[in-house]
């Protein structure tokens, strides 16, 4: 019972007219209490879809199989009304684009107060008082004035902090942050790390960070899950991942960092409509053998779990 969230064999397929896009295909992982788990992978590997699936925020043409257990109940089977009580209260989602995620015609204060009004039934005036304290906590000063401003009066970084304030206002047990460093300067990335650290000082919560930014993940995460083409190929401690990654994809990903030689991975990421047979990475993998045409299971190797025949 050390896990906040357990995802078991999750499949998310978008149904199109005559094909289906397998955005997430057989993903299992868990988020432990109080930990920071970073979900990393290239664009289009299904990370964000996975994040949205947890709160069931996907469009209607989607077929979801598997289990998402939160506090012992399967989120995929909960009635809509029950789920609504979890969204923003127990699990908060911090969206990708701070610039467009705030309503342009409403004051910031009113928007940050929304989760508190919706879930805790707090009166608007008291909620605004709490918002002022939150803004102070996240260095948006002078808070009394800022609370009555509109999103266009905020800078990009302030909008992001406002969204983080909104996410934490109800003291959720799990925060899913979707690409929190998207569009953030290299010089400001450490501030985002610090921002998330600061949230955790006061609340005992778990963090699921979805990112393609390896350096950011290295600074923040306790554990790393690597996603490739709709599957998780490796889950391990952050330290091991950056020192001795196991999966050939993880190795290739790290080698493509500027500090480690800037070597691009050859080939392109495969189509999600017809993913390669067997191991999804084998067409691009330098260790590929004929065995790779069969799909490898998630093999545990010490503390690490890796989906590769090399470690069988």
């Amino acid at each position: 019972m050390n896990d906040v969230l357990v995802v078991k064999d999750l499949q998310v397929h978008f149904i199109l007219e005559n094909t289906s896009v397998k955005a997430v295909d057989g993903v299992s992982f868990n988020v432990r209490k109080g930990e920071n788990l970073a979900l990393i992978g290239e664009s289009g590997s299904g990370k964000s879809v996975l994040g949205m699936t947890i709160l069931r925020l996907l469009p209607k043409n989607v077929r979801v199989n598997g289990k998402i257990l939160f506090n012992g109940s399967n989120l995929l089977e909960l009635p809509e009304e029950e789920l609504r009580k979890i969204r923003g209260k127990e699990i908060a989602l911090i969206p990708q684009n701070p610039a467009t995620s705030l309503n342009p015609v409403l004051k910031i204060g009113i928007q940050i107060a929304e989760p508190m009004e919706v879930h805790l039934g707090i009166d608007k005036k008291i909620a605004i008082q709490k918002v002022i304290n939150l803004l102070k906590f996240f260095d948006i000063n002078p808070a009394e004035k800022r609370v009555n401003e509109y999103p266009h009066q905020f800078s990009g970084g302030m909008k992001q902090r406002a969204l983080v304030a909104m996410g934490t206002s109800t003291k959720p047990k799990l925060i899913i942050a979707d690409e929190p460093t998207k569009g953030v300067d290299v010089t400001k990335k450490l501030r985002v790390v610090e921002l998330f650290r600061r949230i955790k000082e006061n609340n005992k919560l778990s963090l699921l960070v979805i990112t393609h930014d390896l350096l950011f993940a290295e600074k923040l995460a306790d554990r790393i899950a690597v996603m490739y083409c709709g599957q998780i190929v490796e889950v391990c401690e952050a330290k091991t991942f950056f020192e001795e990654p196991l999966h050939p994809y993880s190795k290739a990903l790290l080698d493509s960092l500027p500090s480690r030689g800037l070597k691009p991975i050859k080939g392109c990421s495969p189509s999600m409509v017809n993913p390669p047979q067997g191991c999804r990475f084998h067409p691009r993998c330098e260790y590929a053998t004929s065995k790779c045409l069969e799909e490898p299971p998630l093999i545990s190797n010490g503390n690490n779990n890796v989906r590769c025949w090399l470690y069988d």
């Binding site: 969204r87 923003g88 309503n103 969204l163």
Partner: peptide
Amino acid sequence: EREFIFCSKAIGAKSSWILFKH
């Protein structure tokens, strides 16, 4: 389809809330 509506759904707002407030 705008993102702030998605964001509002993600914080658990009811449809009527989204309709009238946003």
